[in-house]
Amino acid sequence: MTYRSLAWIAAISLLLMGSFVMAEEKPVIYTVNYPLQYFAQRIAGEQADVTLPVPAGIDPAFWQPDAGTVIAFQQADLVLLNGAGYAKWVSRVSLPRRKLVDTSAGYRDRYLQAEEAVTHSHGREGGHSHSGVAFTTWLDFTLAVEQARAIAAALSRLRPAAKDVFERNFSVLEQDLLALDSQVREIVAVDPDNSLLASHPVYQYFKRRYGLNLTSVMWEPDVAPEAAQWSELRQLLKLHPSNWMVWEGNPNPESVTGLRGLGVDSLVFDPCGNRPVDGDFLSVMQQNVQNLKRAF
């Protein structure tokens, strides 16, 4: 065997290895909200690039991507969906079915209806439009664990070689989520009948899991409520006396002052649908738990 043929073999082997490495390039994972991005990032570690293309400050649930972003979703190796009707835009674009992972599909039978939704139909015979399903599933931390488990399984299918890594990372994440779960349960156990108000109907799963006595209004944290909303609240307080209003985000001072006048204090429990300015999902949730403690 000559040197030349050896050189050829070496070159070809390098090429083959190169293509092997190419094939094992880091998978690209697209997600529809921050909790999923966070879970996927925790589970995948360095093994994947996890992207949430929703711009900061926008609620991913009500975002509509442009065609270019949809194409980016199509080209990802995995697209993680929240399910439960979250991000309606998913049903208005074309995504490759086999890349989609509906992380909440495992507990579809435990979905909750959004209490405020009004359906419509066309003519008396027509079928009702899709009534709203409540979609802030991850605030029930056990459901969040289910979603993370679905992500770990999907990653393992995509890269079987790294299955052990994914499972190990998932276990750690599961511990963190279950710790949050038990903390919340402990807090609520102090006064299970404690009556709370929520500024927005996003806490359905949270309420169910932890047995909260919670009623929602339709207030925006950054908008001062109108007179009608104040009088509605006074009516509501008569039926449902409460000392605390749970906000999705920092409420504006006018609302806080007004509420205090009615004997209602404010606390923030951020669902963290999009990337937080500071910290991450876990730190935001830990802060949420601390905030919640004040009400009990």
């Binding site: 509509q64 208005r92 939704a117 009004v118 359906t119 419509h120 139909s121 003519g123």
Partner: peptide, 22 residues
């Protein structure tokens, strides 16, 4: 309270664009 029945006079969009896709 929880449903609205529309009649045939309701005009449906014949084209989907960024303004009405929602």
């Amino acid at each position: 309270d929880d449903n609205v029945i529309a009649n045939a006079r309701l005009v449906e969009y014949t084209e989907i664009n960024p303004g009405n896709i929602d």
